[in-house]
Amino acid sequence: MSITALRRLILIGLLLAIGLGLSLASPSFLKLDNLMTLLQEASQTGIVAVGFTLVLITAGIDMSIGAVIAITAMICANFLTYTHIPAFAFIPVALGAGCLVGLFNGFFITRFKLPEFIVTLASRGILAGLALLIAVKDADGFVSNVFIQDPVYLGFGGTVGPFYIITIVFLVLAVLVQFFLKRTRSGTNIYATGANPTAARLSGINTDKTIFAVYMFSGFCASLSSIFLSARMMTAMPEFGIGSEMDVIAAVVIGGTPFTGGIGDIWGTVIGTVFLAMIKNGILKLGISPYIQPIVIGGIIVVVVVVDVWYKGFAERLARNRARRRTAEQDRAAA
């Protein structure tokens, strides 16, 4: 069994164990309502995490996703408050704004070779400011709450059967992107760009174009998630999503996509988001102080990354010993 498969198996085992523990500790955990809310929470992070996973596979990072959520929410709020343009018409504009942010990030990263994290951190600042700037204000200039009444828009927060629409969208998106990654040339190019950019260029892959594409997709996913968020909350605030990049990073890291690029897939991210959502839900159900949540998220990132490094070193040592034995045998056979 490959080391990644084994890691995933351990993760699923851990997920089930925590689930079991929670259902024993809190009787309401296994209620359908709670499970569906849990999945809804997971999908909220998950949609963003799908785009983020692609960025991570190219060995990049996107710290601007939280702020993209905020700016998208504000764009929608403006349309809803000041225009009568129907939701299906302005939502593409909002999604386009997310792509535009990706374009901006990709431009500075590829054209000026600036470090990814600082570029996206800067655009995070810019977007967070812009979101406040364009927020719907009252007569005194204070940010006012927008109550969303548009039925089409609110429909995004609805359910189909027991499932929330966002959960279905997340799963469909996950399946599509996983398929895209593994079964199309463009998907393969993403892996190649992250694993070995020089080799990718030698093979004729336009790595700059690939980088542009993944950042744009990451922005798109964040925007998409934002629309579901404001539909669920029935309001839009400029603070939406700010800081949520840590949840996304945690989910993706738990899922097993490393920061070194070239490795990772969407299934891991899906498991990671459910894992994270379950822990958050558990904190709630067990009545632990909600302030512990950031500690858990920050702590998880550090612990998982450290354990992964150790695990990888361990697996590599094993593989090296095996390879050495094989070559020795071959040499003996040849001699």
Binding site: I61, M63, I249, G298, V302
Partner: peptide, 12 residues
């Protein structure tokens, strides 16, 4: 990543 995670848990 390490220090961003630290930022998060320190805030917590």
């Amino acid at each position: 990543i390490v220090t961003m995670a630290a930022k998060t848990y320190l805030f917590g």
